[in-house]
Simulated assay, not measured.
Amino acid sequence: MKHELTHLDENNQPTMVNITEKGISARYAVAEARVQLPPEMAPLFKGGEIQGKKGPVFQTAIIAGTMAAKRTHEFIPFCHQIPVESCKIRIECDEKLLVTIRARVETTFKTGVEMEALHAASIAALTIYDMCKAVSHRIVILDTKLVAKAGGKRTVFSRPLCGLVLTGGKSERMGRDKALLEYRGKPHALYLYELLSQYCDETFLSAKANQWAGTALGPLPLIVDEKPGQGPSGALLSAFHARPEANWIVLACDLPYFDEAALKTLLAQADEEKTVGTFFKNAEKGFPEALAGFYTPAAEKLFASAMDSGIGCPVKTLRGANVKLLDSSSVNLANANTQDDFGKARHEIR
């Protein structure tokens, strides 16, 4: 992949990126900075705060970071003036006096807010140094980094991203395995696997052991249900347990129209910070499309509790949960469950 500096013009002169033609979308970014305080500051750390001569250190740093986010364009030459709609800063200090600052900035605009988040975290760290330097100059600002961003061309998550194609269904109404149906010259489960593999760190099929032996799906990595017969919820839990630290993109193999454009829409708006997951909203009934969605690690506890309560339907599990719903008007999430569905989809996709 070719990488070019975007703030240089054709004459190699510095310039601001022209965003005139870019579309407006919801965007967020999360940045993190770490500050190591020396042992002599331990007596000042009480109740989650440091009380210095200049006042409460962490509270002041939060205010300074918020101000910095809103004025980033005044300090970074080619940053656009962005309408910051939300800036939330969290500061924590552990028993070793390692301070972690996490800044999340949100906007609805033509360009992203990663610089605003980085600026907020950086200024919060510098404020901590300034307010504590009277006690010690051995304070060390360790690092500042982007943790996550979404809403633009590229999405960055703080956790690994895994993909799961659900293929373990019985396909009773179709009369043959839906995972092997071909819409684009290859089994649809293989198409979805290859699509997810372009964006995910790891991708798997959810299936029974040896279910796809001797087929085009045979060589692909599997996550086998821990407890067979529990349907999609059981498959999801098995995946969550296999990679508990990961975010997951989950797709059912009976979604013939799901394509790269739909996946990009989902990834661009996925929120790993505040929700159990991000899902397209069913256009007719408003429920989350559970089998075409983005799950965070928080989903494991939700699904485990639901299964213990006898709720095996993913949609019912997600109802009332803290999820982000996306407009699905530009995405075709129709299922292919019968031979008529298959014929119609194959004709339209071709």
Rank of each mutant, 00 (worst) to 15 (best):
L97R: 08
C200E: 06
I82G: 02
N282F: 07
V135L: 06
Y183R: 03
L196H: 10
E182Q: 13
E182S: 13
P77N: 09
E49V: 00
T107I: 02
E194F: 09
N12A: 13
A64T: 03
P297G: 00
L5E: 05
A242D: 04
T338C: 06
A239H: 02
S86R: 13
D130N: 12
L8N: 08
T127L: 14
V84L: 11
E106N: 04
N332Y: 13
G277M: 00
T100A: 11
E32H: 04
L192S: 05
A125V: 10
A150V: 12
Q198M: 10
F287C: 07
G277T: 02
E260I: 08
M67P: 00
T60R: 12
V30Q: 03
K281L: 12
K22S: 01
M67S: 11
D9V: 02
A292W: 07
L146S: 12
A336P: 04
A246C: 15
P244Y: 07
F204R: 02
C162I: 10
D201V: 08
K227D: 05
E21K: 11
P160H: 07
E32Y: 03
V250I: 12
A189W: 00
Q13E: 11
E348I: 10
I62V: 15
G23N: 06
L164R: 01
E10M: 10
G47A: 05
T144F: 09
A31M: 08
A270M: 06
K227N: 05
A117P: 07
C313R: 04
K344A: 07
D341P: 03
F258V: 04
F303V: 01
L237S: 00
E182Y: 04
A103Y: 00
C200Q: 04
T215V: 13
K96P: 01
A121M: 05
Q36S: 08
F240H: 01
